[in-house]
Design a protein around this nucleic acid. Structure first.
Length: 228
DNA sequence: GACCAGGCACATC
DNA sequence: GATGTGCATGGT
C-alpha cells in the first residue's frame, strides 16, 4: 500500500476505534431475509438528502402496510406510495423514483431483485444509473450494501471531511473521490462497507458544516486550514 | 426560526 | 461542462 493508502487506512482505524463497527446497512430485524435487499434499495432512494431517522419512519410504514414487496410496490399508485413515505420528505419525487426502480425490476427480472443484483458490478452500475432517480451514490449504495459488491460509496460527509483535511481539492467530483479510495484502499467488501459508514458517523458527530474539531478522531490528521 | 439531513433531475447559460 | 433550482419532512 502507498503512503496515501496508509493515511486513509489510519483515518479509518481512528474512526472505527471511536465509533465501533457501524453494522451497515441498518435494516428492520422483523423483515423476512428475502425482503432485506429490497428494503436496502428502497431505503437508498428514500435517504437521498434526508436524515436516516425520517427514512426509518417511512420504511416502517411500508412494512406495517405489508407493502415491502416488488409486487405490491409495482401495483401501487404513485400517489398512494407518496402518502406512505411522507415522513422521508420529498415524497412525491421519491415515490416516482421508487416506482421507476420497481418497474425496472418487474419488467426486466420478473420482479426478482436478486437477479438484478447478481449482475457483475460494472454492468450493474451502468444499468442502475440508467434508471431515473438513481444517481451515483444511490447506485453505489445498492451495489455495496444490497449486492455485496466492492464499490466505494461517496457522500457529502466524505467530500467535506476530505476537503478539510486537504486530501482533495474543491473541484474533486464524485468519481474522482471514489477512485481515490478504490486505487489506494484494499478492495474488500467488509472494509468498504464500514468505511463509508464511518464517514457518516464522523460527519454526524464532528465534521459538521460549522467545524467543530475538538475531540474528533481525525483531529491529528493532515489539515489544510485554507480548505473549505 | 434557522439550519441541516447518507441526492437527483432538469433548465439554463 | 458548470451552475442554479425544486423537491419536503422532522430533529436540533
Amino acid at each position: 500500500m502507498d503512503q496515501l493508502g496508509e493515511t486513509l487506512m489510519a483515518m479509518y482505524g481512528a474512526m472505527r476505534g471511536r465509533f465501533g463497527d457501524q453494522q451497515w446497512w441498518p435494516s428492520s430485524a422483523r423483515l423476512p431475509a428475502g425482503r432485506r435487499k429490497l428494503e436496502i434499495c428502497v431505503g437508498a432512494i428514500l435517504t437521498q438528502n434526508t436524515n436516516w431517522r425520517n427514512v426509518e419512519k417511512a420504511l416502517a410504514r411500508l412494512i406495517d402496510g405489508g407493502c415491502m414487496s416488488v409486487r405490491r410496490l409495482d401495483a401501487m399508485r404513485a400517489e398512494e406510495l407518496a402518502e406512505l413515505i411522507r415522513p422521508a420528505g420529498y415524497f412525491n419525487v421519491k415515490a416516482r423514483r421508487v416506482k421507476h426502480f420497481i418497474a425496472h425490476v418487474q419488467q426486466r427480472y420478473g420482479g426478482r431483485i436478486e437477479r438484478l443484483l447478481r449482475r457483475p458490478a460494472g454492468p450493474l452500475r451502468a444499468e442502475l444509473l440508467g434508471i431515473n432517480g438513481i444517481g451515483r451514490e444511490t447506485a453505489d449504495s445498492m451495489i455495496l450494501y444490497a449486492a455485496g459488491r466492492c464499490t466505494f460509496v461517496v457522500d457529502a460527509y466524505t467530500r467535506r471531511a476530505l476537503r478539510r483535511h486537504g486530501l482533495i481539492d474543491a473541484s474533486a467530483d464524485y468519481e474522482a473521490i471514489k477512485s481515490l479510495f478504490e486505487s489506494h484502499v484494499p478492495a474488500r467488501v467488509s472494509l468498504y462497507n464500514d468505511y463509508h459508514a464511518q464517514w457518516v458517523a464522523v460527519g454526524k458527530h464532528y465534521c459538521r458544516p460549522t467545524a467543530r474539531c475538538e475531540g474528533c478522531p481525525l483531529a491529528g490528521f493532515p489539515h489544510d486550514p485554507t480548505a473549505a
